[in-house]
Amino acid sequence: MTEINLQDWVGRSHTEEDTASAVSASRLATLLEQEPHSSAEPATLFPLGHWLHFAEDDVPMNELGDDGHVKLGGFMPPVGLPRRMWAGSQLEFHAPIVAAQALSRTTTIESITEKAGGSGRLCFVVLRHEVSADGILATTDRHTIVYREATSAPDRSAAAPPRGDSPVPEGWDWVRSVRPNEVMLFRYSALTFNSHRIHYDHPYVTQVEGYPGLVTHGPLTATLLLDAFMKNHVEATIATYDFRAKSPLFAGEQIHLAGRRTDSGVHELQAIAPDGKTAIAATVTTTET
């Protein structure tokens, strides 16, 4: 049997096309409880609005793996590790995307790194997405996915209660507290056509993946965090947004979204778990101070 060299996948690239959706933009705004958009002009997508397009799991049912994601071994490398998480993104915003624009996304596998961690083998795959709108580069998104070994955790099929609320953290310029529930997770999965079972299938996520409950999407938390920043800086234009997932969050838990300015046009953001630990660490830079 020929041994697979994962590095053979580095540099692979493909391009997809879509149309910026006013309906998806409106539904995301509803999810985020934003002010309704005026119909007098086309909607400008939320800075992370490209995540509502180019759905990875938009394939026939027989092309999905046991976890609900598209099977590996096609464009994505056959890593051989069954548990997958969105580890973070480094985003640059070059131009806004407006509803009805023609979108093009070129995805390149930038690197594949295998490591040994405290929980076993890990594999990090970095994808570089370059999204253009009407032929103009709009967003560059370096997206890191981490794959992990199967868990040997005992059966946790009984519902585990969410972790208790923690006090509002001090030392931040602003804090907003949110509590994503199962309905929000379902809506975000539907909006992004994400069929990863950890977000809606309780027996699977507890018995197979070993989590205590449904996992809140990393990109959903990152979206809530950036939205909270924008509601506190309504005149700011986002230039970059980097975030890194450090620990999972679960449906029904209170999350503190916090931010503070660290330099001119530079802000530190965190999504803080009920135990007070950082679930997502992020940095935003803006073109206005």
Rank of each mutant, 00 (worst) to 15 (best):
G218K: 00
T283N: 01
S152F: 01
L224G: 13
R142H: 08
A43W: 10
A102R: 14
V125F: 07
S26D: 11
G213Y: 11
A190N: 02
E130N: 12
L122I: 02
A222N: 01
T287L: 14
A55T: 04
V70H: 03
S26T: 13
T151C: 04
R156L: 09
A20I: 09
A95S: 15
V266P: 02
H143E: 07
A116L: 04
S177H: 05
E288T: 15
K231F: 03
S104N: 05
E3T: 15
A102C: 08
M85C: 12
D242M: 01
T216S: 07
D57I: 10
I272Y: 13
W9Y: 09
A228Q: 09
H143T: 13
H14D: 10
E268H: 12
H129W: 08
G252P: 06
V98T: 15
G265R: 04
A282S: 14
P36W: 06
P60F: 05
G265H: 08
T192N: 03
L220H: 03
G218S: 05
Q34H: 12
M85H: 11
L103D: 05
V125W: 09
F93S: 06
H256P: 06
F75E: 01
G65W: 00
L6R: 03
E235A: 15
A273S: 15
G65E: 02
E3K: 13
D173F: 08
V126P: 02
P154T: 07
A43C: 12
E130W: 14
K115I: 02
R197C: 02
G118V: 01
A43I: 15
R105W: 06
T19L: 13
W51K: 00
V126N: 01
H14Q: 14
E17A: 14
F93P: 13
I272H: 12
D134E: 14
A138Q: 08
F250N: 00
G80R: 01
R260L: 02
Y204A: 04
E16C: 08
A271R: 10
P162L: 01
Y188F: 14
V234M: 07
Q7C: 06
R128C: 12
V23N: 03
I198G: 09
T289L: 07
K246D: 08
A22N: 02
I4Y: 01
A239S: 15
Q207N: 14
L6M: 12
S89C: 11
M1H: 11
E35P: 12
W172K: 02
V79F: 04
H233W: 04
P96D: 06
Q90M: 08
L191C: 04
A228S: 15
F193M: 03
E235K: 11
P42Y: 04
M76P: 07
V70S: 06
L249R: 00
F193C: 02
C123Y: 02
